[in-house]
Write a protein that binds this DNA or RNA. Structure first.
Length: 679
DNA sequence: CTAGGGTTAG
């Protein structure tokens, strides 16, 4: 750092003498001396990872000095330095100008291409190496194998394997590791395993590469088996092992998670990466509380989180709607000046969006210098989930104007925004744009958005036709979307078709069973009602009790339906009574038919079971300052009665109430909801 | 001059 700033101000020659004697220098001496550029000085500069500008200045000095310019070992260092500055073309120029190159120059050239993602060029240099009378060595092979790994080039990889055997280098540890990694990346785990088994010397990296091979192919159990095998060879899993495992640890079994946690705990020298991976394991397996717990453990262990840690933990905050926790992380990002960072800011946008803070999400978006498809998609789905479909659609157009190419996920976000806001025309339009213009093959998510869009807008027949003509096998979500649409629009005929298909698929989700038994009851098919109920019982499927979370201070408080266990319960119920009185003055009539949505019907008005969101809202009302927005997260969809109640409470108490249910956000303000009663 | 590894949207 010091070196660079000095170099900007004065010529490199002035500081040179000074550098030859010490690394610390005083500016006073610099101005007096007129040093001479020597090879040793050049080496010292080049070893300090100079930036491009510094490097160019030094290079220009070297060029005018015949002796230095013809020094090929200096040329090699220059090549390396330009490569580190992402200048493979300049590296190549230097390479071409150097006479009498030995294998080392070729190795550096190839590595420059690989590290700068010029894989074809790297392979080209390798393939021409023998025409220069040079034989690839134990440095060349790992490097060209990495090229094949990075570009999934199995064909060339196999050729190289052959050359390796011919050259008698197949017993070399580094070459062997390179082969394992190459085969693993190219989905050839069997071959990778054969190389591993054939090696007469193996280290942690050999095993880690094999772990990565299985993990990248989603073969989690085998990846774990390798971890066990390496232990038998008395090699301890390290941070690299954890990192190699990580691609496969989404939605895995509790046993596997425990295994990884035990491995993590036993690790003597964990390092930041292991912590990050362990947190990611929890986040990717729907264990956000454990993720946040481990994150706070980091602080206790004196380990400072980095950008990756934060980008990993933020989705957990989003999952829990842990606004305070998320905000703290945002403050940390600001304090540590970690932004601008694309991935991190994208994660912040999504976190705020999932906490119902559209304004904050938008602020981050507006202040970003660079935005990618993820940035836009996050904000589009944020608006979509809040029922601001117009804004979502406008954003999508702006995104196109900015020149970004939407991917299939971007289309999911805009299509689901349309379905949440009933934007039928726009939804149809974007579906057509996606398939016709961008040639994106629709996935089950897109079909599900379209069925939801058409069905909820009342076009049940069209929605059903859509299901019938889709090339994929409809899943529970598709039939579920159609069934709810049928219930909203009282279409018993298609509703029963959907119900029967849903029944055949027999999802292990309570929500659909409730929906099923309700429609069968409505159709008078009481035998089917009994069957559904008894299947639920025999399968041990519990009706999911309604539960609402609300964050207060640094804690998240949970309320179950009819909850009386809370310390402030009496106060909550008393306040609720007062509110009910005021609501009735405004014309509130309790709505008992909440069966339109996947909620339980058992709790009729006046009975003990008050829905959890009402309890959570009143709890927040009592415990926060007037005017503070209230954020609730519910594990089921909000029912009609609670929806009306929340609207009235927002009016009576002049509070903004934000309820996130399983499907979307409801922003209640001044007696209205952002969904416009369309949900 | 050397190999293996981490994060985001649905």
């Amino acid at each position: 750092m010091i070196v660079n700033s000095i170099l900007y101000k004065s010529s490199i020659l002035k500081v040179a003498r000074n550098f030859s004697t010490s690394t610390q220098f005083s500016p006073r001496i610099i101005k007096q001396e007129k040093p001479i550029l020597t090879e040793e000085l050049c080496n010292q500069f080049l070893d300090k990872n100079p930036d491009l500008l510094t490097l160019r200045k030094l290079h220009s000095k070297i060029i005018v000095d015949d002796q230095l310019n013809s020094n090929s070992s200096l040329g090699l260092k220059l090549m390396r330095a330009y490569s580190a500055c992402k200048q493979p073309a300049i590296t190549r120029q230097l390479f071409d100008e150097i006479p009498d190159r030995n294998v080392v120059f070729f190795n550096v050239m190839i590595r420059s291409y690989v590290n700068n993602h010029r894989f074809q060029d790297a392979i080209f240099v390798y393939k021409n190496i023998s025409s220069h009378g040079i034989h690839p060595d134990n440095y060349t092979y790992p490097c060209v194998l990495k090229t094949c790994s990075c570009s999934s080039n199995l064909g060339v990889g196999i050729q190289i394997h052959g050359a390796v055997i011919k050259a008698g280098l197949d017993s070399n540890l580094f070459v062997g590791n390179g082969l394992i990694a190459m085969y693993g990346k190219c989905d050839a785990v069997l071959e990778a395993r054969m190389v591993l088994d054939g090696m007469n010397q193996r280290d942690v990296v050999s095993w880690n590469s094999m772990v990565a091979g299985y993990a990248q192919n989603g073969r989690f159990n085998e990846a774990l088996e390798i971890c066990k095998e390496m232990k038998l060879e008395r090699l301890r899993p390290d941070a690299g092992t954890m990192a190699s495992l990580s691609p496969a640890i989404t939605s895995t079994s509790p046993e596997n998670i425990s295994f990884v946690k035990a491995m993590f705990d036993e690790m003597s020298d964990k390092g930041l990466v292991s912590w990050n991976v362990m947190i990611a394991v929890y986040v990717n397996n729907s264990m956000p509380n454990d993720a946040i717990e481990l994150y706070s453990q980091m602080e206790i262990h004196g380990i400072e989180p980095n950008v990756v840690t934060l980008a990993t933990i933020l989705p957990a905050c989003g999952d829990l709607s842990a606004f305070m926790q998320g905000k703290k992380i945002h403050e940390y990002v600001v304090r540590k000046k970690l932004a601008p960072n694309l991935v991190l800011e994208n994660a912040l946008i999504d976190m705020y969006a999932k906490c119902g803070c559209l304004v904050e999400a938008r602020k981050i978006f507006d202040e970003m210098r660079n935005r990618d498809i993820v940035t836009w998609t996050s904000l589009i789905s944020a608006y979509g989930m809040s029922g601001q479909g117009r804004d979502a659609v406008d954003l999508f157009s702006k995104m196109l104007e900015s020149g970004l190419i939407p991917d299939q996920i971007a289309f999911v976000s805009v299509l689901s925004a349309c379905s949440h806001s009933g934007l039928l025309t726009e939804g149809r339009h974007y579906y057509k744009v996606m398939t016709d213009e961008y040639k994106i093959v629709p996935r089950i998510e897109h079909f599900s958005c379209m069925v939801d869009l058409l069905g909820r807008a009342g076009n049940i027949d069209e929605a059903y036709d859509f299901v019938k003509q889709m090339p994929l096998e409809p899943n529970e979500r598709i039939w579920g979307a159609l069934l709810s649409a049928c219930r909203v629009h009282s279409n018993m005929e298609i509703g029963l078709v959907a119900a029967d298909r849903l029944f055949q698929l027999s999802p292990e989700q309570a929500g659909y069973y409730v929906l099923l038994s309700n429609i069968y009851a409505k159709a008078g098919r009481f035998e089917d009602v009994t069957t559904v109920r008894s299947i639920m019982q025999s399968k041990g499927i519990q009706k999911l009790p309604g539960c609402s979370d609300v964050e207060l201070g640094n804690k998240v408080y949970s309320f179950l339906v009819g909850d009386r266990s809370h310390l402030q319960s009496e106060q909550i119920y008393a306040e609720l009574d007062v509110l009910f009185g005021k609501m009735k003055e405004l014309g509130y009539v309790p709505e008992t038919d909440s069966a339109l949505h996947d909620v339980e019907e058992e709790e009729k008005e006046g009975h003990l079971a008050i829905h959890s969101e009402k309890l959570a809202i009143v709890f927040a009302l009592i415990n926060t300052e007037p005017g503070t927005p209230i954020r609730i997260t519910k594990n089921l969809r909000i029912c009609g009665d609670c929806h009306i109640a929340a609207k009235l409470i927002s009016k009576i108490t002049e509070r903004e109430i934000i309820v996130r249910d399983t499907n979307r956000f409801h922003h209640f303000r001044f007696g209205e909801c952002s969904c416009g009663d369309y949900w």
